[in-house]
């Protein structure tokens, strides 16, 4: 926990505390694959997984692999450390990513955006997933400029 890197948000937990629904997502991350659930009826992507499709209320989903690329939908650069030790982490960029291969809203992810100049990133910038293996059960996703 003390090996802080500027711009990279530390990961506190060592496990995703997955349940039966979310386990496939985390299993795929171990292989470097970004997956989403997709409604079997209307093909709407829902991520994180939910009990029902917000578009057609169906409760059946399949897991599908996404390209792992996307677009910055909105972002902030956090400059004030809210956790002890995070003065070594700020400034860092974090934002909402719309994932390629999805419809956007309903399957957006929140993520740390790394390997970028935080003074220069913009909404609409193309990004790609960047993985960090935390433990044998947990690999986290971040994004970096594509």
């Amino acid at each position: 926990m003390n090996n802080f890197t500027r711009g990279v948000t530390p990961v506190a937990q060592k496990d995703p505390y997955a349940d039966d629904v979310t386990q496939p997502f985390w299993d795929a991350t171990q292989k470097g694959k970004l997956m989403s659930t997709k409604c079997t009826k209307c093909a709407t992507h829902v991520l994180p997984p939910q009990p029902r499709c917000f578009n057609c209320q169906n409760d059946k989903f399949e897991w599908v692999e996404l390209p792992g690329t996307g677009t910055i939908y909105s972002f902030t650069v956090v400059r004030h450390p809210l956790r002890p030790g995070w003065d070594a982490v700020v400034p860092f960029a974090a934002g909402i990513i719309e994932l390629d291969g999805t419809q956007g809203a309903g399957a957006r992810v929140q993520a740390n955006i790394i390997n970028c100049d935080v003074e220069k990133i913009r909404i609409g910038d193309k990004v790609k997933v960047a993985w960090e293996k935390v433990s044998d059960t947990y690999t986290v996703f971040r994004f970096e400029p594509a």
Partner: peptide
Amino acid sequence: PGMAFMAHSGLMSPGHSFSLLTQR
């Protein structure tokens, strides 16, 4: 389980949230 998807994003306070809406 659902929280694991955003736990490491660094977005953790109301101020961060409203920054995202404002930036957009």
